[in-house]
Simulated scan of single mutants.
Amino acid sequence: MRTFDDLVTEAEAAPVEGWDFSWFEGRATEERPSWGYARAMGERLGQVGAALDVQTGGGEVLASAPVLPRLAVATEGWAPNVAKAAALLHPRGVVVVASPEDAPLPFADGVFDLVTSRHPVTPHFGEIARVLRSGGTYFAQHVGPASVFEVVEYFLGEQPADVRGARDPEGERRAAEAAGLDVVSLRAERLRMEFHDIGAVVHFLRKVVWMVPGFTVDAYRPRLRELHERIQEEGPFVAHSTRHLFDARKR
């Protein structure tokens, strides 16, 4: 059985760029949504002439598509991810644009047949609708409300109702419709996660930085040690992610 210090040191040294989660193999698990977002996204990309992937991360999900449209563009706001996405996607002809998540999309109106996104920090529906052509599609998988809050509240304490209720799918439906998108389908699921050692928790919080803002091992060492002992005594730390699938059309 590996020690607390050994597990934490290893997790602190692991790279966190991009959205490759292979480091968690054998150390954490997450149930996947039944709809198979990457596969469904790939099918749609093969049917359009111009597509934009917003907040692409390291480009891993977009790169999994078997066929890409003639014009394929991706945006990303975090510099290490921009470099990783460019290295992965440029060989496939994808243009990667560095664009802050809270800035207007740097494209003309009505350019794209399809806009996709997997786990955007914030879906800016007005900008998405603006760059879509009339009848174009927004197809995305969003993080839902109170996702993995078992982890969040272990470190930060119970969160207020407005924080727990953020990212509500029905609220996002209303925002999308106000921006000029008709929501054709909206599906939501709650999915089981397990963290099998404290290193997996540390790596998760270093990678998904908005879960516990400002997280460092030094700042939370006592709580981390307590959780390490709990996992050793009781087994995996169980949490639940929430996801919803958006399929919307521009009027």
Rank of each mutant, 00 (worst) to 15 (best):
S99L: 01
D109E: 12
V95W: 06
A86Q: 08
A74Q: 06
A72S: 14
E101W: 00
R70Q: 13
A50S: 15
E60Y: 13
L52C: 08
A63Y: 05
R92N: 06
P80M: 04
A108N: 00
V61F: 12
E60N: 14
A86N: 00
D102W: 08
R92I: 05
V48L: 10
R92W: 09
A63I: 03
G57L: 15
Q55M: 14
V96G: 04
A63M: 08
V73H: 05
A63D: 10
L89W: 03
A74L: 05
D53E: 15
G93T: 06
L62E: 07
A63Q: 08
T75R: 00
L62Y: 09
V96M: 03
G77E: 00
A103E: 13
G77D: 02
L88W: 07
A63R: 03
W78E: 04
L52Y: 05
D109I: 00
P91R: 09
V94G: 04
H90S: 15
P100A: 04
W78S: 04
A87L: 09
V97C: 05
A50G: 11
G58S: 13
L71G: 01
D109A: 07
A86K: 05
D102G: 08
P69V: 10
G57Y: 14
A63L: 10
L71W: 10
F107V: 05
G49V: 13
N81A: 03
R70P: 06
S99R: 03
R70D: 14
L62A: 11
A51Y: 11
L105E: 00
